[in-house]
Amino acid sequence: MNDISEAFVSSLGLILFLDAELLEIILLSFRITFYAVLISSILGIPLGAFLASTHFKFRNTVVSILFGMMGLPPVVVGLFVYLIFSRSGSLGWMGLLYSPTVMIIAQVILILPIVCCLTFQIIESLHTHYNEFFRSYRIAKLKSVIAYIVDSRFELTTVVLAGIGRSISEVGAIIIVGGNIDHITRVMTTAIALETSKGNLDLALGLGIILLATAIVLNGFILFLRGKYLKTPGSTI
């Protein structure tokens, strides 16, 4: 058995002779990851920052639940979203099942707690340092939250990267709600699952290698942007 060496050969072949179909699969993976992470960040970063810098009655309960949700099993999320968007479910009338949109929704549920909790942790430590300062100058809550986010923007890229990592490698939820339909909802991970079930182990592993490579390139690009802004003084708001 030299499946692993065959996998490298077949992945090389796949990259060299990048056909339209594979490109379509990769682009859909990117598209879903992009929107899922974008939406999760827009919602999750302010929410995490707000929770970290505010004290209210059930704050600890809310935070515990959110931290617990970081470990949500994707299959359970997939089933939950399926039941809601099924024709017999409460939002079935929207006809979104087996579409990229519903895959993004499932992934937002998975990624939002991660983005929110990691943001919480980063900003909580900032808050303990600057809380007194902000209060003594009577700076409005909203302004201080914005200041926290802007001040920790470089740390927050790690949060976004964690979201991307979870999103692009996830299969359990999106295969249920997307249905792994050829040309419509097939992404890299669901294609790998399909090829494995067909016994095409070298092709499946080859796709896995491409998935890993694209994830590394994507991360590298974001870290490159981050580095560029870190070095440029005066590029803040």
Binding site: S86, R87, S88, G92, Y98, I181, D182
Partner: peptide
């Protein structure tokens, strides 16, 4: 557009009109 699941689940999904 094909959603390939086991026969049992396919029938279950169809009962949900999916």
């Amino acid at each position: 557009r094909v959603v390939a699941v086991g026969t049992g689940q396919a029938i279950k999904n169809m009962k949900n009109c999916d």
